[in-house]
Structures are given as structure tokens and as C-alpha cells.
Design a protein around this nucleic acid. Sequence first.
DNA 1: TAGTGCCT
DNA 2: ACAA
Length: 215
Amino acid sequence: METPRGFRIIPEYLSPAAQAALVETLRGIVAQAPFFRPVMPGNGRPFSVEMTNAGPLGWVSDRAGYRYQPMHPVTGEAWPAIPDSILDAWGDLTGYPSPPECCLINLYRGEKAKMGLHRDADEEDFDAPVLSFSLGDTATFRLGGATRRGPTKAVTLHSGTALILGGDSRMAYHGISKVMPGTSRLLTGGGRLNLTLRRVTKPVPGIESPRKAVP
DNA sequence: TAGTGCCT
DNA sequence: ACAA
């Protein structure tokens, strides 16, 4: 298949030291917002991955549907803040003028943990790219096209790899078809973490919303 | 249809 | 393909 122009993959974007530091930060986030297992809308079938979020809005799924919401579905607490290092990476890699509002954290444990073909379509803003980072065990990512059926391309994601779905690939179907247990020692107890950053609401025109004051 | 489970 |  022809690779879309807005699709970018940056192997080793995060150094081993940066990965270790990020995992440490994520430990704090997970302590505040524990992983939960979402279920499918309607039939209530459980996901094979566990999830939590950081940022003003978190992505959740339950029998009622997919949505973004400001609180953890189990604890009712607000999501923790997105780490500064991740916000910096968003600016660096996307150049998008507004910050991401959701950092979805997916945990893949064991051979059965997968993510079927889907597309990120619950946002209001489809202009912003989707940025994601891989941590821990190596995985096979599949990139499809504009429909759920049709050919897909396999992309291997190692720990530290950054991936961007932007432009003509923003609405492409994609998923994780396989995770190879034991291929990384980054996470205690093994497994794979994926961080997905998204802008959810449309930025208000004229507001650049920098998070650091300009001296 | 962000699900599983066959089959080729 | 499935079946809600």
C-alpha cells in the first residue's frame, strides 16, 4: 500500500534515559489515576488492554459509548496533568500551536493484549495530528486506509519510537496486531505502554495558549 | 467494528 | 463472520 504523506515514524526519538525518566513520571500518574479496563459500547465486552489518562480530558469507553470526560470513571477524580516532557515533545514534533488535551495511556500485558483496527474519530479537532510514543516491549503496528477493510502495512514499534498520524493519515484506520513479550527490560514486570496525545476541542482562534511565560 | 474467532 |  502507499504510505500517506502525513504518516511519520521516528525510531529512538526518546533516549533510554528519557524513557526511564518518563516511566518514573508515569508511575506517579498511575498512582493517582489507576489503570481501568474499558468495555465496548453496547455489548460490554472488555478490552484486552488497560487504560488511564492524563490531561484535561480523558478518553473512555463503556456501554454508553466512546467519549472524552474530565474525570476518571472509577475514582471520579480529575486526570493528572500531562508531563512537561511530553508537552515539549508535542510542540517539537507536531508544531501545532495548541497543546494536546488528552494523553491516553494504554497498557499491553501478555500475548493477548491487542488493539483492533479503528480510527481516532471522537475529537472535534481533526486538524491536529495524533502523536504517540512506545515504551517497553516491541509491537507490530498496522496502518490501514480510510475504510476498515483493505490492505494494511506492518510497522515495528520499539521502545522510544514516536509515531505521528497527521494530514492524510489523520483518519486512517490503525491498530496493534501483536506485542512481543520479553523484548524490553524497561518496565518492571514487562509489557508495553503506549501514550497517545490528541487535541480534542477546536482551539479558539487567536489564542495561542503558551504554557510558559515569555520573559 | 478501539471486540473475538474462525478460515485460507 | 459474528449478533446486539
